[in-house]
Design a protein around this nucleic acid. Structure first.
Length: 324
DNA sequence: ATGCATGAGGG
DNA sequence: CCTCATGCATC
């Protein structure tokens, strides 16, 4: 099979934001694509106004392709899982649910059928483009006793459910503030790091550059962002009153474990697993970790983080990459 | 800007 | 063990 390169590349570039010199102002001139990961976000959002009068010319929409790819991944895994009878049920069911969920985002219907051939269950998802057929409505899956294998210990359920309506006025307001905040922050000459430290004056405790950055980009959970907003809002008002930077104390003492670098192929495998089973059991994690030659703890944490990412306000939602 | 990690709180 | 809020280390 394939090998993973969980190498710990030696760090070389340091783009520390003006943590000690306020002359760094804006900075943040970052450029993405540092990872070249083929699967940035398997999400299939965006809206597609499809004139129902379009003749069936073929499923060549990008969205359709994306979903197809997602299905392929899920299917691939389900087959892989076929080697582990004790877990097939959960995985397959989860796969189906994920497919339906994915389909819910775009005008496509998913029809998944089950085939018990030689004791090897196979998931066969069929994508139906509304413009192509008279629409064979997505037939609901009937987990008729066939799927419930004996040793299948299902952890819990697979929610992945969104947390807040992206169109909610609250979310819109949050986004507006985030943009405004960044703009005004820059005008004041504060770096994200500066803000995090200065925040102590109105909040009592500091925050890291990371947190400020995530707030500005709304890469936090909805609740977290809502909680931070008033704090940042308060600080901003104070800061604008005083006009210039009033940075606080700076304590630079840190040291931690070196960050593990998970190879790209390993990430693909993990992503596939996640698509069908976002919450793998301990034994699952052990198996995955073993097959990828990575520490179990690393895998466990990866899933935890992946789940968290799924819950971010701006994660994989209609929000355009708002690059800059 | 973001990936992997830590720790508090809940079960 | 998980979720959640957070952040160091690193791209």
């Amino acid at each position: 099979m394939d090998f993973e390169q969980y190498s710990n590349s030696a760090g070389q570039q340091q783009q520390q934001q003006g943590a000690n010199g306020a002359s760094n102002g804006t900075s943040q001139a970052s450029e993405q694509g540092r990872e070249g990961s083929p699967l940035r976000s398997p999400t299939v959002a965006m809206s597609m106004k499809s004139p129902r009068s379009q003749p069936a010319s073929g499923p060549n929409d990008q969205q359709h392709k994306d979903l197809t790819a997602q299905v392929a991944a899920a299917l691939q895994y389900s087959q892989y899982a076929a080697a582990n009878p004790s877990q097939i049920p959960v995985h397959v069911i989860a796969a189906h649910q994920n497919l339906q969920q994915a389909a819910g985002r775009i005008p496509v219907a998913v029809t998944t059928s089950f085939q018990m051939a030689n004791g090897s269950p196979t998931l066969t998802p069929t994508l139906v483009h509304p413009n192509l057929t008279s629409l064979s409505s997505p037939q609901s899956f009937q987990p008729s006793g066939v799927i419930q294998a004996p040793g299948a210990a299902h952890p819990k359920n697979i929610p992945i459910t969104a947390q807040v309506d992206p169109e909610s006025p609250e979310v819109k307001n949050l986004e507006a503030f985030a943009v405004s905040f960044k703009s005004r922050r820059v005008k004041l000459g504060y770096t994200q790091t500066n803000v995090g430290q200065a925040l102590a004056s109105v909040h009592g405790t500091n925050f890291s550059q990371t947190t400020i950055c995530r707030f500005e980009n709304l890469q936090l959970s909805y609740k977290n962002a809502q909680k931070l907003k008033p704090i940042l809002e308060k600080w901003l008002e104070e800061a604008e009153k005083q006009g210039a930077i009033q940075h606080e104390e700076e304590s630079m003492e840190r040291h931690r474990k070196r960050r593990t670098t998970i190879g790209m192929s390993a990430k693909e495998r993990l992503e596939q697993h996640f698509q069908v089973q976002p919450k793998p059991s301990s034994s699952d994690i052990t198996k995955v970790a073993d097959s990828l030659n990575l520490d179990k703890e690393v895998i466990r944490v990866w899933f935890c983080n992946r789940r968290q990412r799924e819950k971010r306000v701006r994660a994989s939602l209609g929000g355009s990459p708002e690059k800059e």
